[in-house]
């Protein structure tokens, strides 16, 4: 592969000049070549970009709210996360989803120490901090300190389970349903479930 030029994010371009970044050019060139070779079509590419934009934490939140309101679905979700999500019409791709349930006294959180594996089919692409060296390094050594940096202080009596993802195995935290939400609809419940609650660095709050 061609050697990249000196890489520097601090670009200084002449006023009005259009400069294409090295890796941006690589992406365009590779996509064009693959389309010409018939590996996929330009339409496939457009559809996939649109699908990515449609993948947001709202998908994961809908799954959590369904699990909170439908015990049979919750049991299926904990047994086989991939199949349960597919039963809701969510395209899950080739990786396996394991759903880990927070219960009174047990909290779960997710990291990928080796890279940035993440349940992107349910949450969209991961936030930058999830991929950062501090989160990946420290989450398995001093997770309580890391969670405190997110403002989540767990009592010492709470068992904390940190799940390290792999290329083939993704985790989603099923948070505890907040007290005082018995009258809420499934849609209103989903609105309480943030992305960070499903990574395990936050917990949902009653409205």
């Amino acid at each position: 592969m061609a050697e990249p030029p000196d890489h520097n994010h601090d670009h200084h371009h002449p006023e009005g000049a259009v400069r294409l970044d090295y890796y941006e050019a690589m992406q365009l060139a590779v996509a064009e070549l693959l389309i010409e070779k018939g590996i996929f079509s330009a339409d496939d590419m457009r559809r996939e970009v649109e699908a990515m934009q449609a993948r947001t934490p709202a998908k994961g939140a809908a799954v959590v709210a369904r699990a909170w309101t439908d015990p049979a679905f919750k049991a299926a979700l904990l047994k086989n996360g991939t199949a349960a999500c597919e039963s809701l019409g969510i395209e899950m791709g080739p990786t396996h989803l394991v759903v880990v349930e927070n219960t009174p006294g047990v909290h779960n959180a997710v990291v990928c120490t080796l890279c940035s594996c993440y349940p992107r089919m349910l949450l969209g692409p991961p936030p930058d901090w999830y991929k950062s060296r501090p989160y990946r390094s420290r989450m398995v050594r001093e997770p309580r300190a890391v969670l405190a940096e997110f403002g989540l202080r767990l009592p010492d009596s709470t068992v904390l389970r940190v799940h390290d993802s792999t290329a083939d195995m993704r985790y989603l935290v099923l948070p505890e349903r907040p007290a005082g939400t018995t009258s809420l609809s499934e849609g209103a419940l989903a609105a309480l479930v943030t992305r960070d609650c499903m990574i395990g660095v936050a917990v949902p709050k009653a409205p």
């Binding site: 992406q27 365009l28 590779v30 590419m45 970009v49 699908a51 990515m52 692409p125 901090w129 950062s132």
Partner: peptide, 22 residues
Amino acid sequence: PVKPNEHDYAMWERQVDALMVL
């Protein structure tokens, strides 16, 4: 410390993602 950074992905980044998914 973990810096709670995030950014919206640029179109070319979304296209790299799409490429991989395909």
